[in-house]
Computed example of a mutant assay.
Amino acid sequence: MPASEREKMAAGEWYCCLDDALDLLRRQARLAVHAHNTLPPDQRGALAPALRALFAGTAQDVFIEAPFHCSYGINIVLGERVYFNAGCTILDSGRVTIGDRTMFGPGVQIYCAEHHRDAALRSQGIEIARPVTIGPDVWIGGGAIVLGGVTIGERAIVGAGAVVTKDVPAGVTVVGNPARIR
Protein backbone atom coordinates (compact mmCIF):
# COMPACT_ATOMS: atom_id res chain seq x y z
CA MET A 1 0.00 0.00 0.00
CA PRO A 2 1.48 3.38 -0.97
CA ALA A 3 2.35 5.85 1.78
CA SER A 4 -0.07 8.68 2.47
CA GLU A 5 0.84 12.19 1.39
CA ARG A 6 1.35 13.08 5.08
CA GLU A 7 3.76 10.16 5.51
CA LYS A 8 5.65 11.20 2.39
CA MET A 9 5.82 14.79 3.67
CA ALA A 10 7.15 13.63 7.05
CA ALA A 11 9.72 11.37 5.38
CA GLY A 12 11.12 14.20 3.24
CA GLU A 13 9.83 12.66 0.00
CA TRP A 14 7.99 14.38 -2.84
CA TYR A 15 4.28 14.59 -1.97
CA CYS A 16 1.12 16.29 -3.16
CA CYS A 17 0.04 19.18 -0.93
CA LEU A 18 -3.41 19.14 -2.56
CA ASP A 19 -4.49 16.26 -0.34
CA ASP A 20 -7.67 16.09 1.75
CA ALA A 21 -5.88 14.86 4.88
CA LEU A 22 -3.31 17.66 4.62
CA ASP A 23 -6.11 20.17 4.00
CA LEU A 24 -7.71 19.03 7.26
CA LEU A 25 -4.44 19.53 9.15
CA ARG A 26 -4.03 23.02 7.67
CA ARG A 27 -7.61 23.84 8.68
CA GLN A 28 -6.88 22.77 12.28
CA ALA A 29 -3.79 24.99 12.24
CA ARG A 30 -5.79 27.97 10.92
CA LEU A 31 -8.29 27.55 13.75
CA ALA A 32 -5.54 27.43 16.40
CA VAL A 33 -3.73 30.40 14.82
CA HIS A 34 -7.00 32.35 14.71
CA ALA A 35 -7.61 31.63 18.40
CA HIS A 36 -4.11 32.86 19.25
CA ASN A 37 -4.33 35.97 17.10
CA THR A 38 -7.79 37.07 18.23
CA LEU A 39 -7.79 36.37 21.96
CA PRO A 40 -7.17 39.48 24.07
CA PRO A 41 -3.58 39.36 25.38
CA ASP A 42 -4.70 39.00 29.01
CA GLN A 43 -6.68 35.88 28.03
CA ARG A 44 -4.20 34.52 25.50
CA GLY A 45 -1.15 34.91 27.65
CA ALA A 46 2.18 34.06 26.06
CA LEU A 47 0.67 31.39 23.81
CA ALA A 48 -3.00 30.55 23.27
CA PRO A 49 -3.88 27.07 24.55
CA ALA A 50 -5.13 25.97 21.11
CA LEU A 51 -1.81 26.87 19.50
CA ARG A 52 0.22 25.24 22.30
CA ALA A 53 -1.81 22.04 21.86
CA LEU A 54 -1.18 22.07 18.11
CA PHE A 55 2.62 22.24 18.27
CA ALA A 56 4.74 19.08 18.43
CA GLY A 57 6.46 20.46 21.53
CA THR A 58 6.74 23.71 23.46
CA ALA A 59 8.38 24.75 26.67
CA GLN A 60 6.12 26.51 29.15
CA ASP A 61 7.81 29.91 28.79
CA VAL A 62 7.50 30.39 25.01
CA PHE A 63 6.10 33.78 23.95
CA ILE A 64 4.55 34.40 20.54
CA GLU A 65 3.28 37.88 19.72
CA ALA A 66 0.19 38.16 17.53
CA PRO A 67 -0.23 38.01 14.65
CA PHE A 68 1.45 34.69 14.00
CA HIS A 69 0.93 32.13 11.24
CA CYS A 70 1.90 28.50 10.69
CA SER A 71 0.71 26.06 8.06
CA TYR A 72 0.49 22.87 10.16
CA GLY A 73 1.90 23.53 13.62
CA ILE A 74 2.34 19.80 14.19
CA ASN A 75 5.95 20.00 12.99
CA ILE A 76 7.07 22.83 15.30
CA VAL A 77 9.18 22.23 18.42
CA LEU A 78 10.08 25.25 20.57
CA GLY A 79 12.62 25.28 23.38
CA GLU A 80 12.65 27.30 26.59
CA ARG A 81 12.20 31.09 26.45
CA VAL A 82 11.76 31.19 22.66
CA TYR A 83 10.34 34.57 21.61
CA PHE A 84 8.58 35.49 18.36
CA ASN A 85 7.88 39.15 17.67
CA ALA A 86 4.75 40.17 15.74
CA GLY A 87 4.08 38.97 12.21
CA CYS A 88 6.19 35.81 12.12
CA THR A 89 5.30 32.94 9.78
CA ILE A 90 6.40 29.30 9.87
CA LEU A 91 5.39 27.20 6.88
CA ASP A 92 6.14 23.94 8.65
CA SER A 93 5.63 21.19 6.13
CA GLY A 94 8.98 19.95 7.48
CA ARG A 95 10.12 19.72 11.09
CA VAL A 96 11.08 23.10 12.59
CA THR A 97 13.13 22.84 15.78
CA ILE A 98 14.05 26.02 17.63
CA GLY A 99 16.50 25.99 20.52
CA ASP A 100 16.28 27.59 23.93
CA ARG A 101 16.44 31.37 24.29
CA THR A 102 16.19 32.02 20.55
CA MET A 103 14.59 35.31 19.56
CA PHE A 104 12.85 36.33 16.33
CA GLY A 105 12.35 39.92 15.21
CA PRO A 106 9.09 41.02 13.59
CA GLY A 107 8.11 39.47 10.30
CA VAL A 108 10.59 36.57 10.33
CA GLN A 109 9.57 33.79 7.95
CA ILE A 110 10.57 30.12 7.84
CA TYR A 111 9.69 28.19 4.67
CA CYS A 112 10.14 24.40 4.69
CA ALA A 113 8.37 23.58 1.43
CA GLU A 114 10.16 23.54 -1.88
CA HIS A 115 7.83 23.36 -4.85
CA HIS A 116 8.78 21.16 -7.78
CA ARG A 117 10.86 22.86 -10.47
CA ASP A 118 8.93 21.11 -13.23
CA ALA A 119 5.95 23.42 -13.94
CA ALA A 120 3.57 20.54 -14.73
CA LEU A 121 4.33 18.80 -11.41
CA ARG A 122 4.29 22.09 -9.53
CA SER A 123 0.80 22.83 -10.88
CA GLN A 124 -0.30 19.47 -9.47
CA GLY A 125 0.84 20.51 -5.98
CA ILE A 126 4.01 18.42 -5.87
CA GLU A 127 6.50 19.65 -3.29
CA ILE A 128 9.09 18.40 -0.83
CA ALA A 129 9.50 19.39 2.83
CA ARG A 130 12.92 20.22 4.19
CA PRO A 131 13.51 20.64 7.94
CA VAL A 132 14.84 23.76 9.64
CA THR A 133 16.92 23.52 12.82
CA ILE A 134 17.83 26.62 14.80
CA GLY A 135 20.14 26.22 17.76
CA PRO A 136 19.95 27.85 21.18
CA ASP A 137 20.67 31.53 21.81
CA VAL A 138 20.14 32.55 18.18
CA TRP A 139 18.86 35.98 17.22
CA ILE A 140 17.07 36.37 13.89
CA GLY A 141 16.49 39.98 12.87
CA GLY A 142 13.23 41.39 11.55
CA GLY A 143 12.12 40.42 8.07
CA ALA A 144 14.68 37.62 7.70
CA ILE A 145 13.73 34.54 5.69
CA VAL A 146 15.03 31.05 6.49
CA LEU A 147 14.62 28.42 3.76
CA GLY A 148 14.07 24.70 4.21
CA GLY A 149 17.03 22.43 4.76
CA VAL A 150 18.92 25.06 6.77
CA THR A 151 20.57 24.60 10.16
CA ILE A 152 21.56 27.70 12.15
CA GLY A 153 24.16 27.04 14.82
CA GLU A 154 23.99 28.15 18.42
CA ARG A 155 24.63 31.82 19.26
CA ALA A 156 24.45 32.83 15.57
CA ILE A 157 22.91 36.12 14.50
CA VAL A 158 20.92 36.55 11.30
CA GLY A 159 20.72 40.20 10.28
CA ALA A 160 17.43 41.91 9.52
CA GLY A 161 16.21 41.18 6.02
CA ALA A 162 18.72 38.38 5.40
CA VAL A 163 17.71 35.42 3.25
CA VAL A 164 19.28 32.28 4.70
CA THR A 165 19.71 29.65 1.99
CA LYS A 166 22.59 27.64 3.52
CA ASP A 167 23.66 26.45 6.96
CA VAL A 168 24.97 29.07 9.36
CA PRO A 169 27.87 28.03 11.64
CA ALA A 170 27.66 28.55 15.39
CA GLY A 171 28.59 31.96 16.72
CA VAL A 172 28.71 33.89 13.44
CA THR A 173 26.68 36.80 12.06
CA VAL A 174 25.18 36.56 8.58
CA VAL A 175 23.61 39.36 6.56
CA GLY A 176 22.32 39.99 3.05
CA ASN A 177 20.61 38.11 0.24
CA PRO A 178 21.78 35.43 0.11
CA ALA A 179 23.03 35.58 3.70
CA ARG A 180 26.82 35.62 4.04
CA ILE A 181 29.11 35.74 7.04
CA ARG A 182 29.82 39.31 8.01
Rank of each mutant, 00 (worst) to 15 (best):
G125V: 05
A156M: 09
F84P: 01
Y72V: 13
P106V: 00
I74K: 12
I140Q: 06
E65F: 00
C88Y: 05
L147S: 07
L147G: 05
S123F: 01
G149H: 04
A144T: 09
D137Q: 04
I145Q: 11
R117C: 01
G143V: 13
N75S: 10
P136C: 09
D118H: 07
G107K: 12
D137Y: 04
G153H: 06
F104D: 08
F104E: 11
I98L: 11
G143P: 09
G107I: 10
G107L: 11
Q109A: 14
G79C: 03
E154Q: 15
F63P: 00
H115F: 10
H69K: 12
C112F: 11
Q109D: 01
Y83V: 14
G149F: 02
R101E: 15
F104V: 13
G79A: 05
V82S: 03
V77N: 03
G149S: 04
H69A: 13
T133S: 12
E127A: 10
V108T: 12
V138A: 06
H116M: 06
G149E: 01
F84E: 05
P136I: 00
I110D: 02
I64G: 01
T102D: 07
L78Q: 07
I126F: 12
G153S: 07
V158P: 02
Q124V: 02
V62Q: 08
G79L: 02
I134A: 05
I90D: 02
E114M: 11
H116E: 13
R122T: 05
I152R: 06
G79Y: 06
V77I: 06
A86Q: 11
G94T: 09
T133F: 06
L91M: 15
P106F: 04
C112M: 13
G135C: 12
G143R: 01
F63V: 09
I110L: 15
R130N: 08
S123D: 13
G143H: 03
G99E: 04
G135N: 06
I64W: 03
P106R: 07
G73W: 07
L147W: 00
D100F: 00
M103F: 03
I64Q: 01
R122G: 05
E114V: 14
Y83C: 12
V62T: 12
V158C: 06
V150T: 03
I90V: 15
G125Q: 09
D137K: 02
G125S: 10
L91E: 13
T97N: 03
L91C: 08
Q124F: 00
T89M: 15
T102F: 07
C70R: 05
I145N: 08
